[in-house]
């Protein structure tokens, strides 16, 4: 700010020395006044900015105190939670170890043709229980993964047909009737003696009906009635054949 003032003063002195006229001096005086006003305005703004900065710094200090206090509280709580989680982890490890021992004792030996890696990991019971729990609670993606894991790892297990039915259920519950029909049909194709077949055929027929394939649905229901006339699903099928026909 000082440089322009100095330059103006020098210019005024020079002009006076060279015998300039009064009107020019007056203009110069006006220019100097204007410059002084601008300098004062900038100084005032500078002071306000400084005050604002100081206030902000104080506010930041106070916020830092709050944060430090909160962190102290949180750390204490988090430590308690960490300890609780560690205890739960330990309990889970114990339970899982017992489960592994139990499954090792209870599970039938895997077919000799199966690769050893295929039976590693959780047992069929564990996978089936968890997947069924997920299905019941509406966690369909997790249930689907669980059932499919069981089919891959424990395809010879006597829970495999249940798992295949569960795969169909995961799709049916999400109104993916095309996929559901494909999966229900596999129960009969791969485990024709399973007691899940009547329910699978019934749900296959319902899936076909929802897909608008009434003729296929009726055919499936008639097959169900013919092959399993005493099954609970057979009576449902008889009722529904009437609906499909209508």
């Amino acid at each position: 700010m000082r440089a322009p003032i100095l330059a103006a003063a020098l210019l005024a002195a020079g002009m006076a020395a060279s015998g300039c006229y009064a009107p020019q001096l007056l203009r110069l005086q006006g220019g100097l006044d204007s410059l002084r006003t601008q300098v004062d305005t900038l100084s005032a703004r500078d002071a306000v900015a400084w005050q604002t900065l100081s206030d902000t710094r104080r506010e930041l200090d106070s916020q830092r105190d709050v944060l430090l206090s909160t962190r102290a509280t949180s750390t204490s709580s988090a430590r308690e939670v960490s300890e609780a989680l560690a205890r739960i982890d330990g309990m889970l490890e114990d339970v899982m170890a017992k489960l592994r021992i139990s499954n090792d004792r209870a599970a039938p030996s895997a077919p000799s043709t199966a690769p050893p890696a295929a039976v590693a990991g959780p047992g069929a019971n564990t996978l089936y229980d968890q997947a069924t729990q997920d299905l019941t609670m509406g966690r369909y993606a997790m249930a689907l993964q669980g059932y499919r894991d069981l089919l891959v790892r424990h395809g010879a297990s006597d829970l495999a047909d249940n798992a295949q039915y569960g795969v169909g259920e995961c799709f049916f519950a999400q109104a993916a009737f095309d996929s559901a029909a494909t999966e229900y049909a596999k129960v009969d194709l791969q485990w024709p003696r399973s007691d899940r077949v009547p329910a699978s055929l019934y749900k296959l027929a319902l899936s076909q009906e929802r897909l608008g394939r009434a003729a296929e649905s009726r055919k499936t229901l008639e097959e169900l009635v013919k092959r399993f006339p005493t099954a609970n699903e057979a009576q449902l099928a008889r009722d529904r054949i009437g609906i499909v026909r209508r």
Partner: peptide, 16 residues
């Protein structure tokens, strides 16, 4: 089925 107890405890503290 074998007993499986799963306890879930979560704490979230957001102090910002």
């Amino acid at each position: 089925p074998a007993l499986l107890a799963l306890a879930l405890l979560t704490l979230a503290v957001l102090a910002s």
